[in-house]
Every structure is written in structure tokens, then in C-alpha cells.
Design a protein around this nucleic acid. Structure first.
Length: 407
DNA sequence: CGTCCACAGGAATGACGGGCGG
DNA sequence: CCGCCCGTCATTCCTGTGGACG
């Protein structure tokens, strides 16, 4: 009874804390999917993309576009913004334009992309069960029946291409042959500048009809962006210029990533709110930076399959006293962990892939080196704080008992 | 200067859970 | 309900390779 009432009090406190908080007026403005009305320092890209897509309003197929730029340079925001404006204009003048945004990091198979494309035009496809070719056929059929200009945005397209190749891209860019009434334009967005080299030359030439480059923001531009958003997100008294400058500077250090800058600012505000103070300080910003890293890592780790966790644990055990390790060492450590748990281990080939996966998401650093006579291997070290690994792995009921053995 | 280590990483193939059309 | 094909994860088998050692 006491626990229940105290629990309610805790909740009550949190609610009241948030309600009486004088930090945020509208926190959503700082979230990822918010598309602002103004995009400072992107006027040039907006104009260019707008002029490329505008022919859709007159019923002709816009050129395909390839957009390059590092993360957080406004590629997605600009694209979504221009499409939003285009669609509202089309509605105004009564022209049919379909748009479909697909992020191929989340939907990284040809099949799932087609699923998404279908969704946008009201076509229901099963999650699994039919062949990719059949799904594509159905999509084309419905798309054609709609008699519209369809603009397909494939964001982070490098993920799709790395996994599935450029088959879908090729078909979409050549879809004119299969469509009688509708037309499909493709906007490909990537942060991998080398990507184009891997493409089929035919895809390259048709997708690269128009190329748009998004340069990184510098610290001053980031400040402008943050200030504009902060005006909408915070009470004026809650935020100060030095906090904004610091967020901008920290994000500029990482190639001018606006998304990161906004994240830092938002989390700093959240921390201030939790602490029940009325003003965000630079101290909150530094705390936010740490928290973001930690949350990201925790999220990644807890959602990994068991064997990935075990490989990570093996790496943790081998590197916790500061030294680096190699694939071979990791594998034997991993094997003995499996033995303790009484489960079967996967092969070294698979562990090699798991190590690549861990490296790709940034949990570890793995670098291929040749040690001459002593072979070629990967030198592996943890890229995140040790206690973050421990905390995240502790949540796994199978792994938790192992952890205490290796303190 | 060739050898050969200790793997990297590609290709083919299989097991499995799941939805499909008939 | 069945046979079929899907995506995913994993295995097996394989060829490739940078550079210290002899």
C-alpha cells in the first residue's frame, strides 16, 4: 500500500514538474521529423529542387534527382518541404501528384520499399508471401491506374543499394516503359559520395540527370538554425545565446550536423526540465551530449540478437583493461562464453560479420591490419564507455549472470 | 624476394517462420 | 489444408591479401 501511494506520488511529481516547467513551449519543434517553415542557408537548394520538380504541376515528368550531403545537412528537410509545397500547389490547381517518402535504412530490402510505395497510393501488400516481382507488378498496375505524376523519394538510398543492388532503382527509372498513364520520378538521397561508382552506368545516367549537393553547415549557420527553432521551442527566458552557441559549436565539430545540434539542444532542455530549473545552462548541454551517446548505445545494444551481444561481451572482456584485441581472440572468448551458457556458438565467419555490424553502428572500432608474418586481422576496441556496455547488457536475462563473473 | 599467417569477405546453400493462392 | 516462395540468419567452402619473416 505504501509502495503504491508513493509510486503515485512520484508520477504526480513528474506530471506537475512538467506542467509547471518554464522551459519548453513546444518541444516537438526540435524533433527529427519536424519540417520547419524556414530552412536557413538552404535557399539555393530549395530553389533548385523546386525548379526541377515544378514541371509536375503541368503534368510532365520531372527529371530524376540525386541529392548528396552528409547527415544533418538538411537533405531530408528540404526535400520534404519542397514536396509539401508542391503537393499543396497541385491540390490548389487540381493536378494529381503522388509523393512517397521511403527511408531505406528502415526499409532496406527491395520488397519492403515496394511495400512502402504501395502504401502511399493505397495499395495493400502482404508483409511476406508474394515474390518481389509480383509485388512490383501490382504496384505498377495501381500506380498506372491513378494517372498521376508520382514522385518517389528514396532516402539513405545507400543502404538499399549495398544490400540489394540497384535493380529496383533501374526498374523505377525505366518505369516509363511499363506505364501508360502515370509517370514516376525518383529522388535519391545519400550521404555516401562514393555510392555512384557502384551503380550500373544506366542507372547512374538516368538518376543523375540532376545532382544536388548539400554542403555541411558551419558553426555560424548552425547557430542561425538553432536560434530560429529555439524561438519556437523555448520560453524566451529559458534559453540564452551562449547555450545555443555551444550546441552549434559542438555539432560543428562533427561536420556540421544540424540534426545533432538540435538533439543536443532538446536534450539539454529536457535535463533542465527534469532538474526543475527555469533556465538551460551550458552545463546541461555537456550533460546532454553524454546522455545522447549513452542512449544511442543502450538502444542499439538491447535490441541486438543474443549472439551479437555475446560477441560484444567478449570484446568488452578482452578490452576492459585498455588493450586492443583481434578477431581470433574475440572468437575464442565468445566460444567460451557460449560454453558457459550451454548454447551453440556460430561460426567464425558469422562472428566476422557480427564484428562488422558492431563496427558499422559505431559500438566498436575495427580496423583491418596486416601483421605480416602473423597474418591479417582486425584490431578491435570498444568505441563507447565500458559502463554503458555493462548497463545495457545487464538488461538481458541470459547475459546478466555472465557479467558478474567478469567484473 | 617469395612465403605464408590469420584472417577478410564473396558465393552458394540450407533451415526456418510466415503469408500466399489455390 | 498444401505446396510455394519470401526474407533472414547462419553455415560451408572458398579465394584474396599486406607485409614481417626467413
Amino acid at each position: 500500500m505504501t509502495s503504491r501511494s508513493s509510486f503515485r506520488d512520484v508520477l504526480e511529481d513528474i506530471f506537475l514538474q512538467t506542467l509547471k516547467s518554464r522551459i519548453f513551449t513546444n518541444r516537438d519543434v526540435l524533433s527529427h521529423d519536424y519540417v520547419p517553415e524556414e530552412l536557413p542557408h538552404r535557399e539555393e537548394q530549395i530553389a533548385k529542387l523546386g525548379s526541377v520538380l515544378a514541371p509536375a504541376l503541368k503534368g510532365s515528368k520531372p527529371n530524376n534527382v540525386f541529392i548528396y550531403g552528409l547527415t544533418g545537412t538538411g537533405k531530408t528537410a528540404v526535400t520534404k518541404y519542397v514536396l509539401k509545397r508542391l503537393v499543396s500547389k497541385a491540390t490548389e490547381i487540381g493536378v494529381g501528384i503522388d509523393t512517397c517518402y521511403v527511408n531505406t535504412r528502415q526499409d532496406d530490402t527491395t520488397y519492403r520499399v515496394i511495400l512502402r510505395l504501395g502504401e502511399c497510393i493505397g495499395l495493400k501488400l502482404p508483409f511476406t508471401g508474394i515474390s518481389t516481382a509480383e509485388a512490383y507488378r501490382r504496384f505498377i498496375k495501381i500506380a498506372d491506374a491513378r494517372n498521376t505524376i508520382m514522385i518517389v523519394v528514396l532516402d539513405e538510398i545507400d543502404f538499399l543499394i549495398k544490400k540489394q543492388g540497384d535493380e529496383l532503382l533501374y526498374r523505377l527509372t525505366r518505369s516509363g516503359d511499363e506505364l501508360k498513364n502515370s509517370k514516376i520520378s525518383v529522388i535519391g538521397i545519400t550521404n555516401d559520395l562514393k555510392l555512384v561508382e557502384d551503380l550500373d552506368p544506366r542507372v547512374r545516367s538516368s538518376l543523375g540527370e540532376i545532382e544536388l549537393v548539400f554542403p555541411p553547415y558551419n558553426a555560424i549557420q548552425l547557430e542561425d538554425i538553432l536560434r530560429q527553432r529555439a524561438k519556437l521551442a523555448f520560453y524566451p527566458e529559458a534559453i540564452s545565446d551562449d547555450v545555443i552557441s555551444l550546441c552549434a559549436a559542438l555539432a560543428a565539430r562533427e561536420h556540421g550536423d544540424a540534426r545533432r545540434a538540435l538533439d543536443i539542444l532538446r536534450v539539454a532542455g529536457e535535463i533542465a526540465e527534469r532538474e526543475g530549473v527555469a533556465k538551460v545552462t551550458t552545463d546541461h548541454v555537456y550533460k546532454a551530449l553524454k546522455e545522447i551517446e549513452k542512449d544511442r548505445a543502450r538502444e542499439l545494444i538491447t535490441t541486438m540478437p543474443l549472439h551479437n551481444k555475446l560477441v560484444l561481451l567478449a570484446i568488452y572482456i578482452l578490452t576492459k583493461s585498455g588493450e586492443k584485441t583481434t578477431t581470433g581472440e574475440v572468437y575464442s572468448q565468445y566460444r567460451s562464453l557460449c560454453q558457459i551458457l550451454g548454447i551453440e556458438s556460430v561460426t567464425q565467419r558469422r562472428v566476422s560479420d557480427i564484428i562488422s555490424e558492431l563496427d558499422m553502428v559505431g559500438l566498436i572500432n575495427a580496423q583491418v591490419v596486416s601483421r605480416g608474418r602473423y597474418g591479417k586481422t582486425r584490431i578491435i576496441s570498444l568505441a563507447i564507455p565500458y559502463e554503458t556496455v555493462v548497463e545495457a547488457l545487464k538488461e538481458d536475462i541470459y547475459i546478466a549472470p555472465l557479467l558478474s563473473r567478469y567484473r
